[in-house]
Write a protein that binds this DNA or RNA. Structure first.
Lengths: 191, 191
DNA sequence: AATTCGTTTCAGAATTTTCTGAAATAGCTG
DNA sequence: CAGCTATTTCAGAAAATTCTGAAACGAATT
């Protein structure tokens, strides 16, 4: 990793560390960061040199990152090597990331809950457990349908939604007739 | 794990597997699931028996789950053992979970980006890298301020926001004067 | 102050995940 | 098709994480 400027190097190392927390691994995070920060596409050999990891590791990681849609393949005329970049639009990257995490972290759970809830309960304990599972299923279901809606927004509208922030309550109150904001009463956490 | 009904057992095992994908580990996930599904609080010994993991592992994991605010300590009169449950309100659990992930996954990155952006660039490459970092910083910043706003909503209002789903565009268009929904034009991905 | 019951700590064992290097594969080019 | 260059695969090495058992600790009780 000797050819990188200290600035980029720190960026890359940080993403390496975060990689593990984001369901990737160190190399995946580092490669992504390197490509993200690089002004032009890099080939596998460049990456090997820059990060000082084995050529095969780079190859496997690039393949996986392509599976995540987080890196793109580019070709140069008269050069048969593969070059790689990250998508330009950070919003698109964000959408991809969320989509991917939903697929890996949420969907399987939803499927299991759906199955378990429909089983016939064997006793009082099961009955209670199923009630709890239904609560969880309901919550996750609401979140995912909301997400499915929001996901369809184009970038300007998504940005607008984010920009709205707290002001969204005004519309909510108007739309749902909850009336003006009350003090939290017993039984509501209020946050 | 012989004393659990098949239904609860499957639930527990699934959460064990998912645990790893959610930044926990298997035992953490299993204990949480067990407590979540259980009709009443359990003590550490109960958990050891139910999951067939070592007593010390249960102890450490309970401590960590308390750190995540995902399990609560309960006491019974005339019994000096500690008993544990999960918070009742699934919304609260969800809030906790998101908060915790933000703290672990987002905040550190934001701090690093903030630092790196303010450094003086050593060359053209650094200049480009910093521009990219600013893009990323801007996106994450927007997301977190939005989150900070939404987090303050009480449960009914949060539910209302979710219920709104796609209809939110109407308010957005009204609020931002973007005009009626257009076809995506060049430079917008549209999703 | 010794006993009992419950909890915590921590070194190292067991397991899982990640990474490497050597060999296989694939696809041009002359 | 022989010779290159670039890429991929995969068994096992290396590293990181998770788990255990034995011992320490703490606090109430006799």
């Amino acid at each position: 990793m000797t050819t990188l400027s200290p600035l980029v190097q720190e960026f890359v190392l940080h993403f390496g560390e975060m990689g593990s927390r984001w369901g990737m691994n160190r190399t995946l995070g580092q490669i992504y960061a390197l490509l993200y920060a690089s002004p032009e596409p890099l080939c596998a050999e460049d990456i090997t040199a820059a990060l000082d990891v084995s050529r095969s590791n780079v190859s496997m990681s690039l393949r996986e990152l392509q599976g995540w849609n987080l890196v793109l393949l580019k070709h140069r005329p008269g050069d048969r090597r593969d070059f790689f970049t990250t998508p330009e639009d950070v919003w698109q990257i964000f959408r991809t990331l969320v989509e991917e995490r939903k697929r890996r972290e949420v969907d399987p759970t939803l499927a299991v809950l759906d199955d378990l809830i429909s089983r016939t309960a064997a006793g009082e304990g099961d009955r209670h457990a199923q009630a709890r599972m239904r609560e969880m299923y309901g919550l996750i279901g609401q979140l995912t349908t909301w997400y499915d809606d929001v996901r369809k927004l184009d970038n300007p509208r998504l940005a607008a939604l984010l920009g709205l922030g707290a002001k969204v309550t005004r519309f909510l109150d108007a739309a749902t007739r909850l009336g003006p904001r009350r003090r939290a009463s017993k039984g509501e956490t209020g946050q």
